[in-house]
Design a protein around this nucleic acid. Sequence first.
DNA 1: CTGCATGCAAAAACTTTGCACCGCC
DNA 2: GGCGGTGCAAAGTTTTTGCATGCAG
Lengths: 137, 137
Amino acid sequence: MPKYSRQREAIREFLAARYDHPTAETVYRNLREEFPNISLGTVYRNLTLLTELGEIRKLSTGAGPDRFDGNTSPHYHFICNGCGCVLDLGVGGLDHINILAGQNFEGVVEGHLTYFYGKCPSCTKNKKPIDKPFSVV
Amino acid sequence: MPKYSRQREAIREFLAARYDHPTAETVYRNLREEFPNISLGTVYRNLTLLTELGEIRKLSTGAGPDRFDGNTSPHYHFICNGCGCVLDLGVGGLDHINILAGQNFEGVVEGHLTYFYGKCPSCTKNKKPIDKPFSVV
DNA sequence: CTGCATGCAAAAACTTTGCACCGCC
DNA sequence: GGCGGTGCAAAGTTTTTGCATGCAG
C-alpha cells in the first residue's frame, strides 16, 4: 500500500468532482491553486498509481494526451468528432461482444475497450463545431 | 491526389504483406534495406497520408507507439495482455452497439472503436508470457 | 528515524516540421 | 521546369525518471 499524501488525495478528489475527463496538464493547473509547488511529475506519478490501484481510469483517445476519469463504475465513453469533448454513456450490457469476438479465435478474450464516436448533444444542435475543436480545459 | 513516390509505394506494400501491425519504427527499419537513406520523417509522413487516404489503418493501443494495419477491410483487433502482440479478429456485425450506445443519449453515435484484450493463442498454450512482453519487431 | 513521496529538472519516447534538394509529371 | 516528396535535423508534445529534500508512519 502506498503511503498517504495530500497531493494524491487532492488529485483523487479533483477527479471525483469532475465529469469532463481532464488531462494530466489540466489536473496540474488546477491543483496548483491548492499546491503552488506541485510538479507535473508528481501529477503523472499519482495518476499512474491511482490507475494501477483501480481508483481512477485512464482514457487513451488516440489523439492528444491521455485523459483521466474519476468514475470507475463500468461505463462507456463517447468522443465528439466536432468539439473533441469526452462524455459518459449510460449504455451497459455489452459484454456479449467478448463472446462474439472469442468465436473462431484460439486465444482467450477477457475484455474489451470501446470508444463511441459521433456528434455530442451540443454539436448536434449547433450543427457547426465550436470554435476550438479538441481543446477542453 | 498526391504525387507518386517509390517510398510511399514500398510502405504500402510492406504493410500489405505483414499481419503483425508494425510500428512506424519497424516500418522504418525494414524499409531501410531497400532505401538506405529513407528517413523516419518520411515514414511518418506517408503513414499519416496513407491513413488519411484510407489505404491503411492506424491503431492507437494506448500503450507504446501507434501501429499500422495494411488491411482496411472491416475487422477488429485483439491485444494480448501477455506478450503485447496485436492480432486480427474475424468477428463482425457489432454495429448494433452503436444503437445501444445511442439510447438515452442526446447526441448522434456514428461509430465505435473497439479493442479486445486477453491471452493470445500462444500465451494461452504456454501459460507464461514470453520473455519480452510488448516488444514486437 | 527510516523510507516512500515530492519538487525540480533533465531526459526519454514518440511524432511533427522547416528547409534545401531531388524526382515525378 | 514547377511543385510536391524526400532527407536531414531540429523542435514539439507528452510522459518518465534521477536525485536531493521533506513528510508520513
